[in-house]
Write a protein that binds this DNA or RNA. Structure first.
Length: 179
DNA sequence: GTACAGATTGAG
DNA sequence: TCAATCTGTACT
């Protein structure tokens, strides 16, 4: 079943965990989501929307849950986020890794999975609850969740860098072992 | 206008 | 350990 609006309008903290084990489907390719990070609103110092900041780049983060917030980092890699929560409140989660058919080494990083799925700025603001080319699917697979610290945000200070806002499925290492 | 750093990655 | 390479932000 395709995940609908009601799934995404909950807090990023909830959605980032529940979306693990679901499938990302883009242009006919599908992958099981195995790692995410939550960016939980204006008080989150690591978020692009910290202190309610709004820019041309991050405006999709303010849309009602279910919209694609995709942006370029380091000049070369796209990061796929999906907004959560209500309209006007900047929350989202970042999809950091999915498990594709067999070549996980091409989808085990946020930049790499976008390259694999062909995701770029043309998907900016896409509504995954309505889109015909990108959506999330529940295939009835349950999984256990492990929480870790987020990656690459040391600039946000020890409190936000250490908070357990990165989520992985428990057998994440098993997938990596297939490389 | 210039300077700079970043939610990454793969090669050395 | 480091370079690739673009964009928003904070300056001049």
């Amino acid at each position: 079943m395709v995940l609908n609006r009601s799934f995404f309008i909950r807090p990023a903290l909830t959605v980032a965990q529940e979306v693990l084990g679901k499938y990302l489907v883009v242009n006919g390719k599908a992958g099981k989501i195995i790692e995410t990070e939550a960016y939980i609103g204006p008080e989150d110092k690591a978020s692009h929307a910290f202190a309610g900041k709004r820019t041309e780049r991050n405006k999709a983060e303010y849309l009602i849950g279910g919209h694609v917030y995709i942006y370029l980092v380091y000049g070369m890699y796209w990061q796929l986020n999906i907004s959560t929560g209500q309209k006007g409140y900047p929350e989202c989660f970042l999809i950091r890794a999915v498990a594709g058919k067999d070549d996980i080494k091409r989808t085990n990083g946020p930049g790499k999975l976008c390259q694999y799925f062909g995701l770029d700025k043309s998907f900016y603001g896409e509504d995954v609850a309505k889109s015909q080319r990108v959506w999330l699917e529940d295939r009835g697979e349950n999984c256990q969740i492990v929480a870790k610290s987020r990656v690459g945000i040391d600039y946000a200070g020890p409190y936000w860098a250490k908070r357990k806002l990165r989520f992985l499925i428990k057998d994440y290492q098993k997938y990596l072992a297939k490389i």
